[in-house]
Amino acid sequence: MSGINESLKAANDFKDKMNENMKVRKLLKRWNPLIHFDTRDSDVRLTFKMSEGMAVSVEEGHIGDAELAVTFPTVKDLIDMFSGKLDPTSMYLSGDILVKGHQADVIKLDAITMIIWPES
């Protein structure tokens, strides 16, 4: 499947960054969601599992019912977001990234990127 290996690698690197960051872990200590990611230009689908402030796993495909679902325009955007090369907020505000879920959870998702990449 096109881009799945790169996406999984970028997502796993992001997961490690999250787990290493104590501020993120403190912030997310009571947040246990499943987050689905997909893209419009490919079949790449990922499930991010969080538990007690830790990113537990990144798996291929959509598993279970998610609290949040994030759709990127392209696989490249998804990889760039996980790598910190893309500013997700401005893409969200321009309507390019679509997020489904409760508004409070959307802010949590944004806060993670803000803490990991404070200059983004």
Partner: peptide, 22 residues
């Protein structure tokens, strides 16, 4: 908050409460 994150409003407006996530 979103405008602040997008650098169209002062940065302090993007501060998030560490306990309540607001």
């Amino acid at each position: 908050y979103a405008m602040s994150r997008d650098k169209t409003m002062p940065r302090y407006l993007s501060r998030i409460h560490m306990e309540y996530f607001t």
